[in-house]
Design a protein around this nucleic acid. Sequence first.
RNA 1: GGACGGGUGGGUGAGUGGCUAAAACCAGCAGACUGUAAAUCUGCCGCUCCUUGCGGGCUACGGAGGUUCGAAUCCUCCCCCGUCCA
Length: 378
Amino acid sequence: MDFRFEVLKTDPTGARLGRLTTPHGVIDTPAFMPVGTAGTVKGLTQQALGELGVQMLLANTYHLYLRPGHERIRRLGGLHRFMAWPGAILTDSGGFQVFSLADLRKVTDDGVIFRSHLDGSEHSLTPEKSIEIQQALGSDIAMVLDECIEYPADRERAAAAVKRTAEWARRCRDYARENADASTTPGQVLFAIVQGGTHADLRRESARQLVDLDFPGYAVGGLAVGEPHALTCEMTSAATAELPADRPRYLMGVGLPEQLGDYVARGIDMMDCVLPTRNARNGCLFTSAGRINIKNATYAEDSRPLDERCSCMVCRTYSRAYLRHLFMANEILASILNSHHNVAFFLDIMSKIRQAIAFGELAEFSSELQARIETGQP
RNA sequence: GGACGGGUGGGUGAGUGGCUAAAACCAGCAGACUGUAAAUCUGCCGCUCCUUGCGGGCUACGGAGGUUCGAAUCCUCCCCCGUCCA
C-alpha cells in the first residue's frame, strides 16, 4: 500500500474528514494516536489497542535507540513485528526530547548531543541519525528532527529554532530519499514539523519554508508546552493556513478532551497525547462530566460506573468504588483499567468528531462537550 | 523472683537538656500531569482562635512526682512489653 491522503469532506469551520492510507492500514481522520514511547502504550496490550479501534500509535526514536537499540529492532524485523502491532506506527524523531530532556542535552547546528538518562553515556542525534533510526524501526510515518523550544521563548530564539528546524528538515528529507531502501517498511514517509514558538509570523514562515521542501505531510510542533489554549489555537491556525490542503496536518502532543475539537476546527487531521495514559496511571480519569480523581475519598463507596455515557469495557463492568480500591491498593490492574478507559474516551471523542464533521455539526458537538465538562453534568 | 532491653504523634521509627508540634518512611487528605527520564511529582497531615501570620493559645513522647531558667531527653516510684536466668 502506498501512502495516500484523501480529504473526504471539509466543513465550514475548516475541519476535514479524511482517510490516510499507510503501509500498515488505513486511518480515519481526524485521528487520535495513543503514545507508546518505548514500543508499548503503557498499560494496554496491542490486542486491547486493536479492539479499542486504534489505527495508528506513536513510538519514540530516541528512547528505542537507547533501549533496546534500533539495530536490534531491525534484526528482529522492524518495530511492527518486534512489538507485534499490525497497525500503523508514527515515530517521533527525538525532537521532543530536545525540550523534555533540556538538562541532558546540547543543541548545535549539526544536531543534538544527549547524555543518556539511563546510564549517562553520550549520544549524538543528528537529522541523518534520526532518520537512520526511524528507518530501522520501520515506522509508517517518520518525523524530521526538529528543535522544540520552551514557552515562553523570545522572538530571536524562536526564529533561530525555525531556521534550524528547516535546515534539519532538508537534511532529513535528503537522507531519507537517498537511503529509502534501508527502511524496514517500504513506503515509509517523512513529515516535517512547523516551529515558531508563539509568534504567528514565525509560524507562517516556518510552514512556508517546509512546504517549499515538499513533504507528504506536515506537523505543528512546539505547542501545548505551557502557553494558554487560545495561543495554541492561534498558532495552529497560523500554521495550517500556510499548509497545502491535500496533505495531512498533525498537531503534536495535544490535548485535553475538550480541546480536540478546537484543533480539528483549525484543519488538524492527527493528534497524539500522553495525557490519557499518563493521567490514568496517576488516577486522573476523563469523563463526559469532566475529570475525576479516582483516589478521592468520595468514590470509596460509589457503586456507579465511572462515566455513564461511556460504553467502554471498564465503564460497562466496574464501579468507581472498585477502581478507587485498585488505585489505593497500588494494584497493577488500576493502571490497566484506567488507561483502557481514558484511551477509549479519547478515541470516542474523535469518533464523534468525525461523525459531527460528516453531519456538519462539529461546532455543536464541541460546545456541548465543553458545557458538560464545565458544569459536571454528564 | 532476678538481669538486661524497651514504651515517641494513625503505623514503623529517629531523636539522649534549649535550634522539637518533634526527622524519615508508610498510611490518610487534596492538587498537578498536553510529540512520556512519570505506576510520577507537589502540598497538607495534634486541637483550637483570629486581623491567615515564617501569628496567638492549648494539649503531647506509658503514669505520677521531682531536678532545672528550660525535660521526649536527667532523677525517684509505679504500670506495661520483650529477651534471658532461676
